[in-house]
Write a protein that binds this DNA or RNA. Structure first.
Length: 872
RNA sequence: GGGGGAUUAGCUCAGUUGGCUAGAGCGUUUGACUGGCAGUCAAAAGGUCAUCGGUUCGAUUCCGAUAUUCUCCA
């Protein structure tokens, strides 16, 4: 079976067991502060497990794109070195939400693996939870007995809490789990030792392929377990591993999931896979990382310098690094592999097809930029090494290696590789110490203590009423205290709320609660999964009271103006630039709006003018908002809606329509576009390959902006006696200024040359040195300098000391011909410093030319005399 | 969110106890050589040293803030 058939077999099997097949959620997670990427199949159902949202179907199955870069078994730096770890992988899963439990889950797992996919029973092992004294839990006999129907007792293994008790986090839903392992070793190996001795022992050929989790408890912050009213099943089977088992290979990378890419890489670097351990690792790293990067970019997550974008950048750079070091790629190459990946996986994930060009461009740009970083790093490293390494090899300090890494992004392993080539080494322990310090700093800064929710009132789901109302009566349903950096504040959740929680690029609302005359300020509102969380710096005296919740209406109104303007801008962009425009990000708050979109060149001034004019036209048309809060996804598409990217959609979506602009959007909008007043584009810039950013302001801000500029203009006009043609007046003025400037220079030049002649006449010779020491009338440091250098060129054996008053302050310059410096041991720097003391100043410079300033103008002549006195 | 850097000519970058007439390479322009292309040589233009404030006789250089950007950690 090829991988496409395997995927299909899984989904078809569970569809046959009354499961609803749903599509994979985006790999990049929004609205969950604890998670940047989907790292398990259950992520998109988290709200159901947490009880924040009812389940739409009680049985679901899917394949989910996941990304893991850290965790107990998963360190990014290990990926590629073995044959079965990945950054991005597919997780096949089936779920029961309060429906079937252990029995069906185990029976079906067996049916699929053994009866349908024909994995031999003698190669399979199951593990069950052995119990835990800490948590007062017994062994999971139920699971054991279910497995006994299919497997002999010596193929069932008791697993510890570490392996067989699954927890979502420190707190939350959890329960025992049962893993299915497959022994893929050759028969002679299997004869030597039974497979059960290798389960969970990191043997690459005895692997876990499916984990069946039975969620039956909730872990509280104090560590205690509480039985859940509804029990759930959550399973996850590694797709790539399943392919390896069914295709009879010894490595995930030998399956058709990866081989096409690896063949392409081998072709590009002109090496064969399977001939050299180091280049094999590099090829695996690249084949793996290519998937992670491409899927992230397709999901709209571009590489950047923090958060999720930074993780993507790091993965990409790791791939480049391996290619650079072990496959001798010195030019961008990863982008060329996207085509192969698309051919391989585009069927199951069509976003790879529609986004191919985008993905290629972004990857190429990133590769180029990282190769530049490497070049800079190599230069810096070269410079910090001694020119000839001492015999027996020098050692580069860990601090220096860390600076290269931390500040300049130069990978540590490259540092040590380059040093090895030079017969040197690097202090790795020192490097690690520095790294620990850095981590410590970050941890301390990020530490946040979150207490348990205090639940006041049980509700099924929070109701958001802020589309229609800005003031409403609410109850607090739960609250918790959060402490960060010695500052404490509270998270409040209401039964219903007029406050918009930050999401979809729109900033959260602020405002206040009021009860019994007591006000509680709401500083900000965030959306966490399906909860709308209000941030307050104190808890109301009586949290159980009925509150009036009041949104800051002015701020909200400005935000709405900007949000609707964003839709109009999106629409205008498509009209003016073409329908290839796709949203890549958006920020809307009460101050301004920011819109990132795909477009492959700079938007010209003329195009911007057109776009802005079009938006303002739409504003003046006073288009009335047409809002539909429950449209099926398909219906919305036929309406021509633009799907805002990265949102997590239910089966029903909200559609916002202004004239021909139709978008899926959860944000708040003006009743009619006229309210926006006007929009002004304030900037257009590039944020990444193929992505441009437009920033704009609307309504009051736009008006202020125009007023400020008009005021400025009229002020300038006023200064120019209210000229009729401002542009010409300024041009004339500049031209005149230019002319005068030149005249002054000419004049100064003449004056200086006059002074120069005079000075030449005043030369007196002391011991063969031509000495000039005078106070002159020049008031520019530059002019004095020029004069001094000219005289040096024209008079041999010169000793020059010039006093002048510059900007009201006395200044002295000393110039000594180089040969005089050498022969007489004179130093202009020391002379000038001594001389400046006469006028309460100081100075310095080089041996042949130095300057000094002072405070006491009346002592200028004395200072010049002092300087002269050094000539003997 | 926290730490460390960077910002100097159109581009890539040098520039240390604070005073070096602020430089290099590439690019641009001009001239010479050649039958033309290309090239070689010569010369020139091009700088608010990111912005604002402070210390100082004097700041590209030191200090602080801001902006932009890179990088590492969370």
């Amino acid at each position: 079976m090829n991988s496409k058939e395997i995927r299909k077999a899984f989904l078809d099997f569970f569809a046959g067991k009354d499961h609803q097949i749903v599509s994979s959620a985006p790999m990049v997670v929004k609205n969950d502060p604890t998670l940047m990427f989907t790292n398990a199949g259950m992520n998109q159902f988290k709200d159901i497990f947490l009880g924040n949202q009812p389940a739409k179907y009680v049985r679901i199955a899917d394949t989910q794109k996941c990304l893991r870069v850290s965790g107990k078994h998963n360190d990014l730096e290990e990926v590629g070195h073995d044959t079965y770890h990945h950054t991005m992988f597919e997780m096949l899963g089936n779920w029961s939400f309060g429906d079937y439990f252990k029995e069906d889950a185990i029976n079906w797992a067996w049916e699929l693996l053994h009866d349908i996919l024909k994995i031999p029973a003698d190669r399979m092992y199951a593990s069950v939870f052995e119990g835990s004294a800490d948590d007062k839990l017994e062994c999971d006999d139920e699971a054991f007995n279910l497995w006994r129907k299919f497997l002999p007792a010596d193929h069932i293994i008791n697993g510890s809490k570490k392996d067989n008790f699954w927890e979502m986090g420190d707190t939350g839903p959890c329960g025992p789990c049962s893993e299915i392992h497959v022994d893929l070793r050759d028969d002679d190996e299997r004869a030597k030792s039974p497979g059960r001795d290798h389960v969970n022992k990191d043997n690459p050929l005895v692997i876990e392929i499916w984990n069946l989790v039975f969620i039956q408890f909730n872990r509280k912050a104090d560590g205690k377990l509480e039985e859940l009213p509804d029990k759930h099943v959550d399973t996850g089977m590694g797709f790539e591993r399943l392919c390896m088992v069914l295709q009879g290979t010894k490595s995930n990378y030998d399956t058709d999931v990866f081989q096409n890419t690896i063949i392409k890489i081998a072709e590009l670097c002109n090496k064969k896979y399977g001939e050299n351990q180091k280049s094999d690792i590099a090829m695996r790293v690249i084949a793996d990382h290519l998937r992670a990067i491409s899927f992230s970019i397709a999901d709209g997550q571009l590489p950047s310098n923090n958060k999720a974008g930074y993780v993507i950048r790091r993965i990409l750079r790791r791939a480049v690094r391996y290619g650079y070091t072990f496959l001798e790629f010195k030019e961008p190459f990863i982008w060329k592999l996207v085509e192969t990946l698309k051919n391989n996986m585009g069927d199951a994930f069509p976003e790879l097809i529609s986004q191919q060009v985008m993905i290629e461009n972004v990857i190429r740009e990133e590769e180029e930029s990282f190769l530049r970083t490497l070049e800079t790093g190599i230069r810096l490293l070269d410079r910090s090494l001694p020119p000839t390494p001492s015999k027996g090899g020098g050692v580069l300090s860990g601090e220096l290696a860390f600076t290269l890494y931390d500040t300049f992004g130069f990978p540590f392993d490259l540092t040590s590789l380059i040093l090895r080539e030079k017969g040197m080494s690097v202090d790795e322990a020192g490097f690690n110490t520095e790294m620990e310090k850095q981590k410590e700093r970050s941890r301390n800064a990020a530490v946040q203590e979150t207490e348990d929710w205090v639940e006041l009132k049980k509700i099924e789901q929070v109701e958001f009423v802020g589309y229609d109302q800005l003031e409403v009566e609410v109850n607090i349903t739960r609250y918790r205290k959060v402490t960060q950096k010695n500052k404490e504040f509270f998270h409040l959740v209401f039964d219903r709320t007029p406050f918009y929680g930050e999401s979809g690029g729109q900033a959260g609302d602020s405002g206040y609660l009021i009860a019994d005359g007591q006000r509680t300020k709401i500083l900000d509102t965030h959306k966490e999964n399906n909860l709308i969380i209000h941030f307050a710096n104190k808890l109301p005296e009586n949290p159980s009271a009925k509150f009036a919740a009041i949104v800051d209406a002015q701020k909200r109104k400005m935000t709405m103006n900007n949000h609707t303007a964003t839709h109009l801008l999106d629409h205008a962009l498509r009209e003016v630039l073409g329908t290839h425009i796709e949203q890549k990000g958006s920020l809307v708050n009460s101050e301004y709006l920011r819109f990132d979109f795909s477009h492959f060149q700079k938007v010209s001034r003329e195009e911007l003018d057109k776009i802005q004019a079009r938006v303002n036209e739409l504003i003046r048309e006073n288009l009335v908002k047409e809002e539909n809060r429950a449209v099926s996804f398909d219906e919305a598409k036929t309406m021509g809606a633009i799907a805002l990217f990265g949102e997590k959609y239910g089966d029903f979506v909200r559609v916002i329509k202004f004239g021909d602009s139709v978008e899926l959007c959860g944000g708040t909008h003006v009743p009619a576009t006229g309210q926006i007043g006007s929009m002004i584009i304030t900037s257009e810039s590039a944020i990444s390959a193929g992505v441009r950013r437009i920033e704009a302001i609307t309504s009051d801000r736009a008006e202020e902006f125009v007023k400020k500029h008009l005021d400025e203009l009229s002020e300038v006009k006023g200064i120019l006696n209210n000229t009729q043609n401002l542009k010409k007046s300024v041009e004339d003025l500049l031209a005149q200024n230019n002319r005068l400037q030149k005249q002054i220079e000419e004049f100064e030049r003449k004056a200086a040359s006059g002074i120069k002649q005079e000075l030449k006449n005043k030369i007196h010779v002391i011991n063969g040195i031509n000495v000039i020491a005078e106070v002159i009338q020049l008031d520019s440091a530059q002019a004095v300098k020029d004069l001094a250098f000219q005289l040096k060129g024209e008079v041999d054996n010169l000793f020059l000391a010039l006093g002048s008053v510059i900007g009201g302050k006395p200044s002295i310059s000393v110039m000594i011909a180089e040969n005089v410096v050498a022969n007489k041991g004179l130093n202009a720097g020391t002379i000038v410093r001594e001389a400046a003391k006469e006028m309460q100043g100081g100075g310095g410079g080089q041996a042949f030319y130095a300057t000094a300033g002072g405070k006491d103008v009346s002592r200028l002549a004395a200072a010049v005399d002092k300087a002269k006195s050094f000539v003997k």
